[in-house]
């Protein structure tokens, strides 16, 4: 600050190559290294705090549920149907119902979602129409699930006369998670380097050959991860299934997609609403089963992804 910016003879020296511009000892800088470092440390501590908060709440939840639910967990609990008498009640029908629904949801939403994502990323012209589709898919991902329940009731249960069936429930949930699958599959497809597409086209591959042999294999781990995370959301959904009338008291195994059904979260919800204390333990046991199913799904996502990665 003390050194004059120009030479001793005034402004005419500005353009001369010898004019001193910046003081070599850094007179115009105020580095304040210590303050900058401290800011970094504070931010790091905040991030650590965020991690601890998330993990700790999860641990508290798990311990609380396990403490209530572990004593009801038994083979009998898993293989019995629901009952008015708590000691005889089991969770067989909801487990089977959830398995049925998940299998159908995956079978419907995966091909539709990946197909839509491929169209939007690889085929669609970059027009206002495509952009509008894109925006609306993002909006659909944010629509509350109860709205999908109403849609499912009107379209699948009533219009297509599927009744309160596994199929109606699965189609509703498939619609619900479709936007999420599309968006995550698009991200995975977009992450495939363009150089691979060029290499493939450069050898005389058609668009489909390029997609089938180069783009999809590279994008698949990401697509699978997104799909399984979306399915994890579907397995916990309650509201839309209540809306389309999934029953809570099912004392038989659903054998076809047109049978009526119930699922784990509805059974849990139903038990929680009952006044007797014993049912609350049953609900906690149900939550443990549901969380186990979720963990298994996420674990299988990781295994699948790693198997694909290794093949590359």
């Amino acid at each position: 600050m003390s050194a004059p910016p120009f030479g001793p003879h005034g402004a005419e020296h500005v353009t001369a190559p010898t004019a001193p511009s910046i003081d070599p000892r850094g007179g115009r800088f105020e580095p304040r290294i210590e303050t900058r470092r401290r800011k970094g440390r504070v931010f790091q501590a905040l991030c650590l705090g965020a991690v601890i908060f998330g993990i700790a709440s999860l641990v508290v939840l798990l311990v609380d549920v396990a403490a209530d639910g572990l004593d009801v967990l038994s083979i009998d609990f898993l293989t019995r149907y629901a009952s008015r008498i708590p000691s005889r009640a089991g969770i067989r029908a909801p487990i089977l119902g959830s398995l049925w629904v998940m299998a159908l949801v995956a079978a419907v939403s995966f091909p539709l979602g990946v197909g839509a994502a491929l169209y939007l990323e690889e085929y669609a012209p970059k027009s206002w129409f495509t952009r509008m589709l894109q925006t609306n898919i993002a909006n659909l991902a944010g629509v509350p699930s109860i709205v999908y329940g109403i849609l499912g009731l009107a379209v699948f249960v009533r219009f297509f006369a599927l009744g309160r069936s596994v199929l109606a429930g699965a189609l509703t949930l498939a619609l619900l998670i479709l936007p999420v699958i599309i968006i995550s599959a698009q991200e995975a497809i977009r992450a495939v380097p363009n150089s691979l597409r060029e290499a493939s086209y450069g050898l005389g591959a058609t668009r489909w050959q390029t997609i089938r042999h180069q783009v999809l294999p590279v994008a698949m781990p990401g697509i699978l991860t997104g799909t399984i995370l979306a399915l994890s959301r579907a397995i916990g959904e309650t509201a839309p299934l209540i809306m389309i009338g999934a029953l809570t008291f099912i004392a038989f195994d659903p054998a076809t997609p047109l049978d009526s059904f119930t699922v784990l979260p509805i059974q849990i919800y139903n038990w929680v609403t009952l006044p007797q204390e014993e049912f609350r333990h049953l609900a906690a046991g149900g939550i443990v089963v549901l969380l186990t199913a979720l963990l298994l799904m996420n674990a299988s996502a990781i295994v699948l992804r790693n198997r694909y990665r290794k093949k590359l």
Partner: peptide, 12 residues
Amino acid sequence: GMVFQKPNPFPK
């Protein structure tokens, strides 16, 4: 045929 600026072998 074409050879590109950055080597771009397929991940195979």
